[in-house]
Design a protein around this nucleic acid. Structure first.
Lengths: 169, 169
DNA sequence: TTGGAAAGTCAACATCGCTGACATAAAATC
DNA sequence: GATTTTATGTCAGCGATGTTGACTTTCCAA
């Protein structure tokens, strides 16, 4: 719909940037994001963890050995906030915090086997929904989806995001 | 990562559903959503309101006269949670809750002039970012963006979302 | 007239942000 | 070697927003 449909309700033939169209995009973000977090949220309940734990686990998995400071930057929260979460994960044996080799002040974060297991469970659920959405929408839509999301990010974060783009593997 | 991508960075020509590709989509959602909420959040600080207030204002604006129960359903929160937010908005004179005409138990919610003003300020900021992202990505990308987001929603919500699709205007 | 739906309210609690203050260890610099 | 800076951890308290549970009032509808 949209850009090229001349008829329709709002006559947004070429101009697809009407307030109405933009409002629809805004709502789509809200509803989709809620669905996107719903599956992991359900799983996390069983473990008495929250979304904050999920995010920490995700990024430690993505970049094993990253420091607390680096994780802080990625998540955009305070160290006190992250510490609370990280402590429970370490105490519960999901995350290992090794003293840095070069710099002994730093802690390099890794998932334990137990942590990797939960990561799998969470990301499996999230990937399943994402995969279904991708399949339903098709390859061209997926490319557009990613393009718009990237354009929406703050530049600093976008650079960080693209840096790991297909690396980290 | 790897096996199937022939090109350098973005070789998601045919097989775009590798775990790596899906993970990138997941992260894109996370980072983009954070940016998406950042602008309104900054504005809300000046008024001592939070995201919950923003959401209420948005949906009352979209559908003037909707009942508390309907809003509850759209937002997916408990009535106690919504009530706290709604009360401050009514007390502060941003929202008017008129007793229902047909059914006097219901309250039909409307934005006051003051409420509409804040709604404008918030949605202007959010639309500006959305518009910039749309412009950067192009019309085709926008269509794909919306398709994937819609496919990601829970079916019930998607129906609700599409029902107001280009109506309400 | 009675049952139940819609709304409002009170209390208590959990998560997860935040600020501020302070401690420790180690690197970096003077 | 002494001092400063950095990375991390921790305590205490606060605020926003979600939750459950219990209870009341109003009022439509059977």
């Amino acid at each position: 719909m949209g850009a090229d449909s001349k008829a329709g309700q709002g006559g947004e033939s070429l101009l697809f940037l009407t307030d109405e169209q933009l409002r629809k995009g805004i709502e789509a973000m809200f509803f989709a994001y809620r669905a996107f977090t719903a599956d992991p949220d359900r799983i996390l309940e069983n473990y008495d963890y929250g979304r904050a734990h999920h995010r920490a686990i995700h990024f430690i998995h993505r970049q094993p050995g990253l420091t607390v400071n680096a994780l802080l930057g990625t998540l955009g929260v305070t160290k006190q906030s992250l510490n609370r979460v990280l402590r429970t994960l370490v105490d519960d044996g999901l995350v290992e915090a090794r003293v840095g080799r070069r710099d002994k002040r730093e802690r390099n974060l890794f998932l334990t086997e137990k942590g990797a297991l939960l990561e799998r469970e969470l990301s499996d659920a999230q990937r399943a929904r994402m995969r279904a959405a991708y399949r339903a929408a098709g390859p061209a839509a997926v490319a557009g989806f990613r393009q718009v999301l990237e354009a929406m990010m703050d530049p600093d974060i976008r650079r960080q995001y693209q840096a790991i783009k297909d690396g980290a593997a």
